[in-house]
Computed example of a mutant assay.
Amino acid sequence: MTLPIAITIGDPAGIGPELSLRVAADADFQPDVPVLLIGSAEVLQRVAGAVGLNVSVCVVADPSEAARKPGVAYVLDVPMDGVSTITPGQVTAANGAAAVAAIERSAELALASQILGTVSAPANKEAFNAAGHHYEGQTEIYAALTNTTAFHTLLIGGPLRVSLVSAHCSMLEAIRRVRADRVERIVGEMHEALRNGFGIATPRIGVAGLNPHAGENGVFGREEIDELAPAIARLRNRGIDVSDPLASDSLFAAHEAGRYDAVLAMYHDQGTIPLKRFGYVSYSAGLPITRTTAGHGTAFDIAWKGIANPELLSRATKIAVDLGTRRLATERA
């Protein structure tokens, strides 16, 4: 039996439900395995009608009932109240609660090995908080649900794979997080993800410096000397192929040219700006389940208008299928 890949439909007032329907039911965007949508079937039906999608929403009781059939979206219903009053583009606590409920259901199924993995359509952090769920993002919710303390996000776009020392925090906090123990942990997680998830036997990891020109030997800052160098020394003692701190403006070009299998960036914009021209998929490294998401938000300004592009969520779904299949094969070996 082929396990399905799950997609949580995200914030009901955003583009997530529309994108989820398209990836689940459109042959141009479907992966090679069945897709199981997780969320409110009533929301999906309302969105399909609003954007003119000719999709049949089929409610199933068990993931094994999902099939790969163009024109049909199979959904494990997670009901929510007030669907008829949802306003596209509006942040509400009810929408945040619905998104979290779908995440919780998907984590439960993934931990029980009833799905290959889960893909997150975009949700809204403000709505999470309004509903009483105080997390930086969906990744942190999955970490809490799976009792995972060591995890990070690996971003995949074009030929680039990029991990971040910090993501959604202020620049001041990002600088505070550049510490040797954190860098060592994340590079170790990258190494395992590249080996086990992507099948790279001996990963080569490039490390970006925090400061311009990687600090110029302390002229522009000492983080490379005081924090990055000790972490790199310990990683090399563990047999991990990792570079010295390098100027990021040249490091990403070297990665794109094939010199490295992945890059560690020190903060959000340093790592994501080079990826933006490709569009990127986020993979949650370190979790005991396979989970990806598209690297964009809820796009409230175009929600429920039938113009959202499903290509990136489709890519996230196909990557999750590949990663989940490899994980399953490893677990069964």
Score class of each variant (00 low, 15 high):
Glu227Met: 02
Tyr74Val: 07
Arg185Leu: 11
Gly158Trp: 12
Ala41Tyr: 06
Thr118Gln: 05
Ile115Leu: 11
Glu331Asp: 14
Gln114Ser: 07
Ser113Tyr: 11
Leu154Trp: 01
Gly16Lys: 09
Thr118Trp: 08
Ala303Arg: 08
Ala299Met: 04
Leu53Lys: 02
Glu224Ser: 12
Arg46Gln: 13
Val33Pro: 10
Gly324Ser: 06
Ala150Gln: 15
Met80His: 09
Ala25Ile: 13
Asp11Arg: 13
Thr325Phe: 02
Leu172Met: 13
Ala174Asp: 02
Lys318Cys: 08
Val91Thr: 13
Glu184Arg: 13
Leu194Phe: 00
Leu116Arg: 11
Asn237Ala: 14
Leu116Tyr: 12
Arg105Gly: 01
Phe220Pro: 06
Glu42Ala: 15
Ala201Val: 10
Gly271Val: 11
Gly271Asp: 07
Thr292Gln: 01
Asn54Met: 03
Asn124Met: 10
Ile302Asn: 08
Ala167Asn: 09
Arg185Glu: 12
Leu160Cys: 10
Thr92Glu: 09
Ser250Leu: 08
Val72Gln: 07
Ala247Asn: 08
Leu235Asn: 02
Val47Gly: 02
Arg176Pro: 05
Met171Leu: 15
Val178Pro: 09
Ala308Asn: 05
Val72Met: 09
Glu18Ile: 12
Asp32Gln: 15
Leu116Ser: 11
Leu323Arg: 04
Val178Gln: 06
Gly218Ile: 09
Glu223Gly: 06
Ile200Phe: 04
Asp81Phe: 05
Gln45Ile: 03
Thr202Gly: 08
Ala308Tyr: 00
Val100Asp: 03
Tyr142Trp: 14
Leu275Gly: 04
Ser163Val: 05
Gly324His: 02
Ser284Ile: 04
Ile115Val: 15
Ala254Val: 02
Val60Trp: 03
Lys318Ile: 04
Cys169Arg: 02
Leu235Tyr: 03
Phe198Asn: 00
Ala253Pro: 08
Thr149Arg: 13
His191Thr: 05
Phe198Met: 02
Ala265Val: 11
Arg22Asp: 05
Ile103Leu: 14
Ala131Ser: 10
Glu140Tyr: 12
Ala193Asn: 02
Tyr267Ala: 04
Tyr267Arg: 05
Thr146Leu: 06
Glu108Gln: 11
Gly206Arg: 01
Val178Ala: 09
Ile115Ala: 08
Ala262Tyr: 01
Asp28Pro: 05
Leu53Cys: 02
Leu275Ser: 01
Asp244Arg: 13
Gln45Val: 08
Ile141Met: 10
Glu331Gln: 14
Leu228Thr: 08
Ala254Phe: 13
Ala112Gly: 07
Glu216Thr: 03
His134Tyr: 13
Ile86Ala: 12
Arg185Pro: 00
Phe151Ile: 03
Glu331Lys: 14
Arg332Ile: 11
Gly295Gln: 01
Ser113Ile: 02
Ala25Tyr: 09
Gly16Asn: 07
Ala233Gly: 06
Arg326Asn: 01
Glu192Ala: 06
Ala150Lys: 15
Arg185Lys: 11
Ala94Trp: 07
Ala294Leu: 00
Asp62Ala: 12
Ala101Arg: 03
Ala303Asp: 12
His191Phe: 02
Thr298Gln: 07
Val57Cys: 00
Thr317Val: 10
Leu251Cys: 04
Ala254Pro: 09
Glu227Trp: 10
Val263Pro: 08
Ile15Cys: 09
Ile115Glu: 06
Ser64Phe: 12
Ala254Asn: 06
Ile307His: 03
Arg161His: 05
Ser170Glu: 03
Ile289Arg: 03
Ala257Ser: 15
Gly271Tyr: 07
Gly96Cys: 00
Ile186Gln: 12
Thr2Val: 15
Leu154Lys: 03
Asn54Thr: 06
Ala229His: 14
